[in-house]
Amino acid sequence: MISLKVNGTVHEVDADPGTPLLWVLRDNLGLTSVKYGCGEGMCGVCTVLVDGRAERSCVTTVESVQGSEILTIEGLPADHPVKAAWTELQVPQCGYCQTGMMLQAVDVLTARPDLPDGEMAAAMDSVACRCGSHPRVIPAMRQAAGKMKEEKP
């Protein structure tokens, strides 16, 4: 049995230690907001936060994150500044990549909220979006960054 702490709750999961976190979150825990896109860590749509850092769950084994705090979009407060900005600027189109995109943004904004636009874009470069929501992502992050600063001066 593998012990996983996801969104604040500890789950005992019957899975092989080498199983990618992605499939355990989706198939065992029903957290389907975590998306499969490529299975090789290339597209970023499976991104979750592991101890606050964005990780690609499709190439992260469950064994390696035992004892860590895992956060999926369900665990991010519904009124989190990133979610609020994403909603207000209507960033998602199909939305498939956006849960991963938002969690990547949370990591970037938490660690380095004052990045200039170009570096912020570079920090988001590894999450793919085929619909082309790109032009709205950095403006949404700017908006979220402002609010996150207000909340945590």
């Binding site: 290339m42 874009a121 570079a122 988001m124 470069d125 085929r130 032009p135």
Partner: peptide, 16 residues
Amino acid sequence: GFSQYRLLGMKEAPAV
């Protein structure tokens, strides 16, 4: 896979 088929990244996307 995407390792051989790159999609436009965030830093290459222009303002529209």
